[in-house]
Design a protein around this nucleic acid. Structure first.
Lengths: 180, 180
DNA sequence: GTAGAATTTTACCGACCGGTAAGTAAAAGG
DNA sequence: CCTTTTACTTACCGGTCGGTAAAATTCTAC
């Protein structure tokens, strides 16, 4: 693992645990086993470091969800695969999920994270497209707003015990998709 | 308004905007128009100040939701009133809602906020009881786990545009309650 | 092997952090 | 009044914050 990757890994873990403002650059350095100044050799600022962490998190989430959906045939199978992959992500990629969960509210409201908010909203609109697709197949209730549905999904699927996530998914399914 | 209340109000607003770690005691003091040391006259520490803010937030949310439910007759009316009141709270008591949204993840995971986590879980279990009640009246799907439903509701109803909240509510209703 | 580039460390900066001690001002009670 | 209590201010503390300059080390290529 390169030094840069060691720093990114330590930063992910620290931000996941304590949030952006709860962690100091020096703590990240210590977790990574490097000196603080070295972090500034690879990243111009703490904010830039966080931005990179966030971008990777959203990218990996997006890839994880949609790569699996592509290979599936039939809209219902796609949806089931999608939601199953979402649970899989928040349980098996816990660190990244916790970063997203802990900083989502700030990213969405603080003007300082404009870029990151746009990335997150880009992800949301891709989820919304998947829901909208279901209307063609008459699989989604007519009165569903795809963007609202995307919001519901992404705000309610967050790191928790897997047993409870399953139950949440089935409620969401019944709320959005016909014949669930 | 007493000095203590001015401090609490400023703290609420600051924590709502920037989160616990994003705000300094001095900033709260300036927002309240008092000197920093005066905050330590009323509150032993920044943590205690935040705890008071959180406790008030949860109390007011709980009161707002359940006071209205009591006066309603018929389970379905109760539920509708409950969810309507929830939307009302996050739109009209925005500051408190934002405090909850921004710090929920930390409160639930950081051992430092053990007391606050218990309060939040107490609130959740009251919501769960309301859902569980619906099973008696055959208004809730048999396979619903009340605690999971409470989690779904409280994590998806957060400060956003009201138009989208309405749509989220109707998806949640259909996911939990028969004949919605 | 040595020049030069890339990487890492040391040592430091001013600003700000949460918190406190000691004092002043205002209010309350007799 | 004068004393005691309550409310508030001033001035400060040691520590940590994000960030930087410059030196030291390691790597690369001739």
């Amino acid at each position: 693992m390169t030094t840069k990757d060691k720093i990114l890994k330590a930063a992910r873990e620290a931000f996941a645990e304590k949030g952006f403002n709860g962690v100091s650059v020096d703590e990240i350095a210590k977790r990574a086993g490097v000196k603080k100044a070295l972090i500034y050799y690879y990243f111009p600022s703490k904010e830039d470091l966080f931005e990179e962490v966030w971008k990777v998190a959203i990218e990996e989430l997006e890839d994880h969800l949609f790569k699996q959906v592509e290979s599936e045939r039939g809209y219902f199978n796609k949806i089931k695969r999608f939601l199953r992959a979402y649970i899989d992500f928040v349980t098996n990629r816990r660190v990244l999920s916790e970063v997203i969960e802990k900083e989502r509210a700030s990213v969405l409201s603080d003007e300082r994270w404009k870029d990151l908010r746009e990335r997150y909203e880009g992800f949301l609109s891709k989820v919304a497209s998947l829901i909208a697709e279901g209307k063609k197949y008459n699989a989604v209730y007519e009165d569903i707003d795809p963007i609202a549905a995307a919001n519901l999904i992404s705000s309610s699927i967050s790191p928790k015990r897997e047993s409870i996530l399953d139950k949440i998914i089935s409620m969401i399914m019944r709320g959005i998709f016909k014949g669930s």
